[in-house]
Structures are given as structure tokens and as C-alpha cells.
């Protein structure tokens, strides 16, 4: 994803530019979206724990009514507080990650200026609906997180998040027997909607936890820095 860095002769980066004002390559930005309660924040926390020893990380959260998600990450102490920023979204989290990304761009650039250099910035959307996707001006790749308790028909229903996200995560697989969700059917429906795009089934309570998603993130980072 090499963008033309000479397109804008500006003093500071504007949106997706791959380089920062000083000419260095900026951090990879990965967005995490999905419905309310599907486990986005828990996945972000688990990713931070899995990756923070080897990588320089930061997180931007987009709450619907501010700070809840950022405060959860702070309480869990997954990263030092200066590496976590909350963006306020005026009751429209999908607007802040798709239609008007300016506040989020400011947050990622300020994090790089203040605690950088960074390898990776995770941008978490506020819980939203199945149509919420991240702008390419804000993130380089996006993960859509759904869960088995939200209804096993979600992959079949599709929508931009399920269909187009670079990685679909079906979370809370440990709950499937209790809520009557058919994981095989969810996998088949996801395959039908997404063709070759990857899907991960995970339970953060299991031994493997976030391992598969962390491996996918490492692959994206290797491609970004190659």
C-alpha cells in the first residue's frame, strides 16, 4: 500500500499518506468495528497483551458517549495511559470512522508525535451496526468483530462489515452451546459472503485466546514494513 508521498507538499500528513512529516514511515493502522457487546474492546486488550512486548503500540477508542472503552483499557492496564486516546463522536461513531475522520486522524498523528515511534495503532470503533466500516483514509486494514450470541444468522445477513472487512472475527465461541448458535452454519455463511477473505473463530476464555488474530496482525505488519 504505497501511497504517493509527494502528492501533497504539506508540512503535516493529511490522511492516508504512508509517511510522516519528517519522512519516516508511519505506524500501521488497523480498525476494529462491529456491533455493541461483540467483544471489540476485549479483543483490543488481548491484542495489546499479546503484542506489546515486541511492538510499540497505541490505541484510539471511539465511544458513543465517551471514555468507557478507554477507561476499560486503562483499568486493565494493557498499555501505559499515554498510549490510549479517546475520540468523542457526537453520538455517531460510524461518522467518525468513515464520513468525517478528522478527529481520528488527529488522534493517531498526535499519538505518533507524543509517544512514537509506533509500529501499530489499533483504532476501535464504538459499537455500531452491521453497515459500519472504516474509511481507507483512516486505517490500512479492518477487523469486524461479531459474536455467536448476537445471532448465528449475522454472517448470512452480510452487510459491509461482514462482507468486506479484511478479517472477520466470530467471538465468544464458548457460548455457542448455551445460545443455540450453529458454528458450522456461521462458518459456511461467512465463506459464502466473503469468498477468500479470512475468518477467525475465537473465544478469549480459551487457551488459544487471541492467538489467531494476533498472528494475522503480525502478517499485516510484516507486509506494511516490507
Amino acid at each position: 500500500m504505497h501511497l504517493d508521498r509527494d502528492h501533497h507538499h504539506g508540512p503535516v500528513a493529511l490522511s492516508a499518506d504512508a509517511h510522516r512529516a519528517d519522512g519516516s514511515r508511519r505506524a500501521l493502522r488497523i480498525g476494529l468495528g462491529g456491533p455493541v457487546g461483540s467483544g471489540k474492546t476485549a479483543t483490543v486488550a488481548a491484542l495489546c497483551r499479546a503484542l506489546r512486548d515486541k511492538l510499540s503500540l497505541a490505541v484510539v477508542t471511539n465511544d458513543i458517549y465517551t471514555r468507557e472503552d478507554a477507561e476499560f483499557l486503562l483499568r486493565e492496564a494493557v498499555l501505559p495511559p499515554e498510549r490510549i486516546t479517546a475520540v468523542e463522536t457526537g453520538a455517531c461513531p460510524h461518522t467518525a470512522i468513515r464520513d468525517d475522520i478528522s478527529a481520528n486522524l488527529e488522534a493517531v498523528e498526535d499519538l505518533e508525535d507524543e509517544v512514537g515511534p509506533l509500529d501499530l495503532i489499533l483504532v476501535e470503533s464504538g459499537g455500531d451496526n452491521l453497515t459500519a466500516t472504516f474509511s481507507k483514509g483512516l486505517v490500512d486494514a479492518q477487523i469486524f468483530v461479531i459474536d455467536v450470541a448476537g445471532g448465528d444468522d449475522i454472517p448470512r445477513k452480510g452487510g459491509p462489515g461482514v462482507t468486506t472487512a479484511d478479517l472477520l472475527v466470530v467471538n465468544k465461541t464458548d457460548l455457542a452451546p448455551y445460545v443455540g448458535s450453529d458454528l458450522a452454519r456461521m462458518a459456511a455463511d461467512a465463506k459464502a459472503q466473503r469468498a477468500e477473505l479470512p475468518v477467525v473463530f475465537q473465544s478469549l476464555r480459551s487457551e488459544t485466546g487471541v492467538t489467531d488474530v494476533a498472528a494475522w496482525v503480525r502478517e499485516r505488519l510484516a507486509a506494511w514494513t516490507a
Binding site: 504539506g10 490522511s15 486522524l105 488527529e106
Partner: peptide
């Protein structure tokens, strides 16, 4: 100031000029 910074970011793509770039440099 936050809204000024955000407006400038959008405007520098919509109407790219040296004056807007200079303003971004002067008021990061």
C-alpha cells in the same frame, strides 16, 4: 482550535494552496 485544525486538514485536500500549508505549519 481542534475544529480549526480539522477544517484545515480537509481544506488542504479540497483547495491545496501554499497559504493553507503555511497555516498548518504555523499552527500545528
Amino acid at each position: 482550535r481542534r475544529l480549526g485544525r480539522q477544517l484545515l486538514r480537509a481544506a488542504r485536500v479540497a483547495w491545496p494552496t501554499a497559504e493553507l500549508d503555511a497555516l498548518a505549519r504555523e499552527f500545528p
